[in-house]
Design a protein around this nucleic acid. Structure first.
Lengths: 188, 188
DNA sequence: TTTGGCATGTAATCCGTTACATGATTAG
DNA sequence: CTAATCATGTAACGGATTACATGCCAAA
């Protein structure tokens, strides 16, 4: 039995909520797990084909309007495969962070350089944090009582905690690397 | 001027501390930025070759003992390239986290499954946290007064905050997803 | 009628790891 | 002698993104 990529399981996961087309999947993934898991068409279509061959999903023609359109339905075998994968220990996602690399080497350049980078980072986290709050509200509003709601919320919660950590770090770094500006001071 | 990969700049960064061989680079990267940035030989050697052609580094033969060995020295042009890169805004590293994906779909499987996954995650963070503490001590011990020390420490600090965030999340998730075990209770 | 969204798919490319091939030197 | 470490490199493969090619339908 051929080893399957994680994309395959992501697709199976989304298909548990009902039949979808490749196009649907792309958009749904973008709008739900988009903050921690994305897929592109270049992955989705070939893998749907493979999953069909392995009979983990069933392809069917379901023209909406007169438009050609294929829908994929998860099979019992597909559900079993998904369940099996969920039990396998998740391997830690390797970190590869460009900002950290820059900070690591930045003793060679002027203070201002990293100052700007860190401010950017901080601002991005603040904005993201706002987005996560919004998502939380929207989930509670639109899906109150949904059996999967708690799980979904947990992933959002992770985003928040992760953002807060980055935010705290950026602020700490700004203090440690960039001495209070000399150019102008507000008081006294 | 051909676009350079980030690996190229990582290499240039390490070469600012003195000439090194490909072999040296691999090991030094592993032991210093290894927790947030790694490189493999498959990247290092071809890129060293390219950097030599572009004259960002200079290759020289420096047999230690009778062993064949090539050392690379960063050039003035190389330093400028590095400095330029450090100023470019760091692009946020995309998140792709298998555990989150599993949590997202795990309403379909028994509570125990995610419980195990989350415990694993928690334990890994605790262990990592210990490692980071150790690295901090060792840096202070071995490199006290080094001009780059503050920058290095900041990257370790990031690791700590990131770990703590994951740890807090895992514990929260364990509470929310896994009700207190029914199997046995310790007291009363 | 033309633009934008629906829809499917492939090809090129990038970036990276792993495995392989080779060999010299040194410490036990 | 022999195992570990030093040392350089290439080839194969994997996973993913981006760009490209194509075309239909609905609404403005």
């Amino acid at each position: 039995m051929a080893k399957r990529s994680r994309t395959a399981y992501a697709i199976l996961g989304f298909l548990t909520s009902g039949p979808r087309s490749g196009y649907d999947l792309k958009h749904e993934i973008e709008g739900s797990t988009g903050n921690f898991w994305q897929e592109s068409y270049g992955q989705i279509y070939p893998i749907l084909k493979k999953l069909t061959e392995e009979q983990l999903v069933k392809k069917s023609t379901a023209s909406s309007g007169g438009r050609k359109r294929f829908e994929y339905t998860i099979t019992a075998k597909g559900r079993r495969a998904l369940a099996g994968w969920l039990e396998e220990p998740a391997e830690p996602s390797p970190v590869r962070d460009e900002l950290l690399l820059k900070v690591f080497f930045s003793a060679h350049v002027g203070d201002g350089v990293m100052h700007r980078q860190l401010e950017d980072c901080r601002d991005r986290q603040l904005e993201l944090l706002g987005r996560y709050r919004g998502i939380e509200e929207q989930l509670l509003r639109d899906h109150g009582g949904h059996p999967e709601l708690d799980h979904w919320l947990l992933t959002v919660r992770f985003g928040e905690l992760y953002c807060q950590a980055r935010l705290a770090w950026a602020e700490e770094a700004l203090v440690k690397l960039a001495p209070p500006t000399k150019k102008r001071r507000k008081k006294s």
